[in-house]
Nucleic acid binder design. Sequence first.
DNA 1: AACAGCTTAGAGAGCGCTCCCACATTTATG
DNA 2: CATAAATGTGGGAGCGCTCTCTAAGCTGTT
Lengths: 331, 331
Amino acid sequence: MKRPTLEAVAARAGVSRATVSRVVNGQTTVAPHIRDTVLRAVEELGYVPNSAARSLVTQRTDSVALVVSEPPTRVFSEDPLFATVIRSASVELEAADKQVVLMLAGSAKSHARVERYIAGGHVDGVMLISMHGADPLPAAIARMRVPVVSYGRPAVPIDIPYVDNDNIGGASAAVRHLVSLGRRRIATIAGPLDMIGGQDRLAGYRRVVGDSDARSIVAVGDFTRESGAVAMRQLLRDDPQLDAVFVANDLMAVGALQALRQAGRRVPDDVAVVGFDDIEAAKYTDPPLTTIRHPVAEQASTMVRLLLGLFHTGTAEPVILPTELIIRDSA
Amino acid sequence: MKRPTLEAVAARAGVSRATVSRVVNGQTTVAPHIRDTVLRAVEELGYVPNSAARSLVTQRTDSVALVVSEPPTRVFSEDPLFATVIRSASVELEAADKQVVLMLAGSAKSHARVERYIAGGHVDGVMLISMHGADPLPAAIARMRVPVVSYGRPAVPIDIPYVDNDNIGGASAAVRHLVSLGRRRIATIAGPLDMIGGQDRLAGYRRVVGDSDARSIVAVGDFTRESGAVAMRQLLRDDPQLDAVFVANDLMAVGALQALRQAGRRVPDDVAVVGFDDIEAAKYTDPPLTTIRHPVAEQASTMVRLLLGLFHTGTAEPVILPTELIIRDSA
DNA sequence: AACAGCTTAGAGAGCGCTCCCACATTTATG
DNA sequence: CATAAATGTGGGAGCGCTCTCTAAGCTGTT
């Protein structure tokens, strides 16, 4: 009742193990009629190659690790980003016949585990999702001689290929939109500054506000809804006259919208609001949220292609994907 | 520059391969001082066992597949459930030193792929997330002689262990709450009836409404926000006098709330609303949503423990986890 | 002091596969 | 028609590990 081996298929087809191996691996140097015989034997026996044996000799595993180096915070599971990235990356990897090994590296203990696993050569490559600058894992993995790509620009300047969206450009576009609406007291609720996304979106805001005659007013949140509300209340205290706010992600924007309503401000009449991410919920806020859309799924699939390219050519260049301003009713 | 093998460690420690293997695998039949010497050699060389070689001989892989047999719909990625399940299951599996291989089986093609992979003995066990009754995958996997557990009761009656929440009990509690509030025209927006969750929650509703003198009014949605709004509008047409509605998930409840507002109904004064799931957004609706909470993370970790138990004892019994009524302002 | 009974280390086979090399065919070329 | 060059197939080694079997070294008993 055990699984058939190459040997068994060879015996059944009346050929050698080597020939079966050739057929199974799609080599063309096998005579067509033998090929057919072998394939029939494979079919009849329900043969499936033993991946352990294959890996042992080829030194490949045909699997890649998707390492999520992030403490399991509420943000992350509430955020639809995670599911989308995983799904999109999986689909793309499946097309390339690679297995996805998911590894969560939220704690120091799991960090060690992940490092050992990767150092052990159990995967052909690594896709890394790490958002925080203080995270030592990207550097650690980059030191090993394993192909690795990053989802998002690494927060510390290490030389690994990455795919990011144009955070700076997107934030700039958001603020330009507010300026074009005639707003002059444009605040921002920035994300955590130890995250690249937080930094870059703030930089984009600063760039445009600095170029205009508008005043810059900054509050910092942590990408959660609640922090958005808190930051918004603070901004209103700091400058009751503000007429616009660029919020570094939609989740915080939802909180900000709520805070504005509680403070009796009308959106967009009194205060215009632009978010970032274009999450599903952005369509359903009151009023629907004007925001910056970035292609999460495409970012993930591009990351996969980058990694596959790395396997074949040995090099890969970073990719920055464009963002898009989605105008709804909040600005 | 290649990775050290057992052989290398053995040479360095001045012992045989077998002894190193014993030490690495934690056998106690090794003299302490030899053990220390070996461990030092392991440390110095940075030895990590080659899992392919190990699997080849042990016939174990120390990895399990997490199979998500669901078309990649919007619902699924919008739903925080997915991320929570994956995270919780991963944490639990890591504790048991198992690898998580994530497989999406949304299409017929990927079905075949997953089946081949599992039949190939590449994983020690399977955790299956499948919601739709028509899904052939659970049965297909159950036929293979691979340990498998299901997240949620399988929609077709096949004999595999599962962990589910008490959908019927939860729905009953929701409706009883509405009855206790004095509501007598209690409608429901059911989920898709090809999903166990949809069926059971409707059954729970029916059971309580049938026992009371309340009328039963049913509309069916597909667990999306939009379908909730559509269903709510239909219910209002069918029975403009309805004074309560039990919605089979929170996402639809959010849509229903929106539809009620548009129809000029006050919640909970005119119509009381109870949802199901207690997603994050339920706290932030207007008014905050009364709902049934079920322990998603616990369900996932229990599923893992069930699978691990299956490895050791060969059997596992289904588990039903209790739900909890969370009373907010909508009912 | 001799031997049984135990503990601990090493030798060696073999898991299922790929791939190099040798060899047997067939086909092209002078 | 002889020989060279392709072309296709089989033999066999070996990937790194575990595990059984055997042997060697102890201890303790009579």
